[in-house]
């Protein structure tokens, strides 16, 4: 880096492209480490800002996760109530689990779709970030963090709505004394399940669009008009 540059003589073929941008060495002579950064803190900050500034988009994604996870929570809680606290004359049929599974699948598709649109809309932004020194993995990280944040919100809300609906429904049907036997531990593990499923949905839905976004060349990203 510090050697003074000779004017170069060695371009031979007419065909080859040689651009010499000659500058003198840094006057201080200090070698800055060739490093680019994006700290965890900044990642969270940028992702949060990005979510806040696109509230409708975020609301759509969160609502999708809420729908899926609340249905799952409802089914699971219903099966706990029916199996343990009644004589099990009514049960949750296998097909209902299928329904839950399919609803989760629909969530994945829907979020993938919305993420793909987001990537298109933000391709210019991604291009700018890359011009400013962002690495591919920084772009990936930003998208995943955003997605994870929304899935956390969706998972918690989905658990709340699903379990409320289940409790009210079965409370009215079987009596609230049955519902009140549900242990906090069971609720807590349901919350865990809901958040984990929400997380899995969002991450798998974000994977492809985010990968595409991260790989785009900055010059191509600028050309996209939405």
């Amino acid at each position: 880096m510090h050697a003074y540059i000779r004017i170069i003589n060695a371009y031979t073929t007419q065909r080859s492209l040689i651009i010499r941008v000659l500058t003198m060495p840094e006057p201080t002579g200090k070698e800055t480490t060739r490093k680019v950064w994006l700290s965890i803190e900044e990642t969270f900050d940028l992702s949060l800002k990005s979510i806040r500034r696109r509230p409708i988009k975020a609301a759509y994604n969160i609502a999708t996760v809420v729908l899926g996870t609340s249905f799952l929570t409802f089914i699971t809680l219903a099966s706990i109530v029916l199996r343990r606290y009644t004589e099990a004359t009514i049960s949750i049929e296998a097909y209902q689990y299928w329904l839950a599974f399919i609803s989760l699948l629909l969530c994945v598709i829907s979020i993938t779709n919305s993420m793909a649109i987001t990537v298109l809309e933000r391709s210019k932004e991604i291009g700018i970030m890359k011009c400013m020194g962002a690495l591919d993995r920084h772009i990936l990280l930003l998208f995943f963090t955003e997605s994870a944040m929304m899935s956390l919100a969706g998972g918690i809300l989905g658990f709340l709505s699903g379990s409320m609906i289940a409790m009210v429904t079965y409370g009215l049907q079987l009596g609230f004394d049955v519902v009140s036997k549900i242990s906090p531990f069971e609720l807590l593990s349901l919350l865990g399940l809901s958040v984990m499923v929400a997380f899995a949905i969002s991450i798998s839905a974000t994977m492809y669009p985010a990968y595409k976004a991260a790989k785009a060349k900055p010059t191509e990203a600028f050309k996209v008009e939405v």
Binding site: L17, V21, T23, V36, K130, A134
Partner: peptide
């Protein structure tokens, strides 16, 4: 084909990480 030099550095040969650094700094 060909080369692009900035300082003594052929930037057409830099990897993604070094390029990001170059764009940044």
């Amino acid at each position: 084909s060909g080369q692009v030099f900035i300082d003594n550095l052929d930037i057409s040969k830099l990897d993604a990480y070094e390029l990001a650094w170059l764009r940044c700094r």
